[in-house]
Design a protein around this nucleic acid. Structure first.
Length: 433
RNA sequence: GGGGAGAUGGCAGAGCGGUUGAAUGCGGCGGUCUUGAAAACCGUUAGGCGCCUUGCGGUGUCUCAAGAGUUCGAAUCUCUUUCUCCCCGCCA
């Protein structure tokens, strides 16, 4: 949510910013509703002031025993009351309209975000690692995984449905190893670990910007509940409606959760493998920062996500998303893309965003620091994957595969795999026909 | 699921339908005293929104879980919702 006052005073800037995202807004309607709202507030409050004053006077008359005068005054105020009620109703309507309009406006991209209309215009910032050069024909993880009996797509579909998969044996163990490894990485640099619920409510989803605009991306599980699409939702909302101590910022939070996405409208995209599924595991990082510090914190968050990929020795690149591609709540966003031999390309494995005060205004997350400034300010919120576990597994299987159909475990992960250094094909209990 | 009790400022805890945005205590901040500290004493100590103001600030309004209602006037009365606590039942 943008600040109505800011929008009012920077109409042209907002116009340009929104256009750069390839979306539109109703500028005229904003100006009209904003003006109307303030006019109505002034009118209502003037009448209320009058009512309050006259009611006080009635109180005085009553105490003095001047009953008749009091009765006469009552009739007057009664009249006022009706006027206030109808004006106030109008005000509420205008405020609701304005709020709905504002809630659908995306965040303003930071000046440093490259201009562009879609992902083809994202800008590569840097690359790390050596893309593997196989002496044999490498397999895609959706072929190799089932061959090793560690990923089972057919049974995943059988026991849950399409876009679900099942991990077995060392596949399941690798999933668990990655989760623990990522969380330990973050904790080493000062992140606090959390365990949130994965079911949530509309207020929470509104706070981080999933609602009202993106309901179709979510699993709606009961009249008032949704499955979270990312732990960002829970971690950021931890401090909803709270005022933080500015001297304690930044707060660094991390959590592992499964993430649930309807993936409506993505039929036909990434249909093979474990790249795009309804349920996947992710370790998430969230930061609460001061207004001055948030863009520095974005850079260090990206570095933290990179550290995970570097520790696993997976080749990747960092991309600065262009204005047309950054998310609704973000002012700036970097994607980390890991090399996937099956795609012969880099594929998103982490997305790190600075949402500035956009989510904080919706979720009412503020901070104060009397040493530094008067009053309270909206905090800046950041989130980033560190990392998407399923995609990390796919990257490991594909980048670390050997000619003999085995997969080497990256050194950093070996302690988390109970000393296992290599995944070998696993037995199947199914009778051979 | 059944029954009962609650929800007031950072915390604790008063509150008769009419100078109660809210007593009192604690905590926080500023000051007096002191070589310093403690104690004592004095003062101060919410937020949202609108308007005025270069700024300091001023002013109006709203907020005592949320929403609706009664009333000239509601923290106080009525209804609904949410949440918390206790007892019983069920249960990983």
């Amino acid at each position: 949510m943008l600040d109505a006052k800011f929008v009012r005073e920077n109409l042209d800037l907002v116009d340009k910013a929104i256009a750069s995202r390839n979306v539109t807004w109703d500028r005229e309607r904003f100006v009209e509703l904003d003006k109307k709202r303030r006019d109505l507030i002034t009118q209502v409050e003037q009448l209320q002031a009058k009512r309050n004053k006259e009611s006080d006077a009635i109180g005085t008359l009553m105490r003095e025993g001047k009953k008749e005068e009091a009765e006469a005054a009552k009739a007057d105020v009664s009249d006022l009351k009706n006027k206030i009620a109808s004006l106030d109703e109008e005000r509420a309507k205008v405020e609701e309209d304005l709020h709905n309009l504002m809630a659908a406006i995306p965040n303003i991209p930071d000046e440093s975000v490259p201009l562009g209309s879609d992902d083809s215009e994202n800008v590569e910032v840097r690359r790390w690692g050596q893309v593997p050069d196989f002496s044999f024909k490498p397999k895609a993880h959706w072929d190799l995984g089932p061959e090793l009996n560690i990923i089972d797509f057919e049974r995943g579909v059988k026991i849950a449905g399409s876009r679900f998969y099942l991990l077995g044996g060392m596949g399941a163990r690798l999933e668990r190893a990655l989760i623990n490894f990522f969380i330990d990485m973050h904790m080493k640099v000062g992140f606090k670990e959390w365990w949130p619920p994965v079911i949530t409510n509309a207020d929470t989803l509104y706070g981080t910007g999933q609602l009202p605009k993106f309901e179709e991306d979510l699993f709606h599980v009961a009249p008032d509940f949704y499955l979270i699409p990312t732990a960002e939702v829970m971690l950021t909302n931890i401090h909803r409606d709270e005022t933080l101590d500015g001297s304690k910022l930044p707060l660094l939070y991390t959590a592992f959760t499964p993430c649930f996405r309807e993936e409506a409208g993505s039929a036909g995209r990434d249909t093979r493998g474990i790249i795009r599924v309804h349920e996947f595991d992710k370790v998430e990082m969230v930061k609460f920062a001061t207004q001055e510090d948030s863009f520095n914190q974005l850079e260090s968050m990206v570095e933290e996500a990179e550290a995970c990929l570097q520790a696993l020795e997976l080749p990747y690149r960092v991309v600065s998303l262009c204005t047309g591609d950054i998310g609704f709540s973000a002012a700036k966003c970097y994607d980390l893309e890991v090399w996937l031999p099956s795609y012969n390309d880099y594929k998103e494995i982490s997305s790190c965003s600075n949402c500035t005060d956009f989510q904080a205004r919706r979720a009412n997350i503020r901070y104060k620091d009397p040493e530094k400034f008067k009053g309270t300010r909206y905090a800046h919120t950041l989130n980033g994957s560190g990392l998407a576990v399923g995609r990390a597994m796919a990257a490991i299987i594909e980048n670390y595969q050997n000619a003999d159909r085995t997969v080497t475990i990256p050194d950093a992960l070996v302690p988390y795999m109970g000393g296992v250094t290599k995944i070998e094909p696993e037995d199947s209990p199914v009778a051979k026909s």
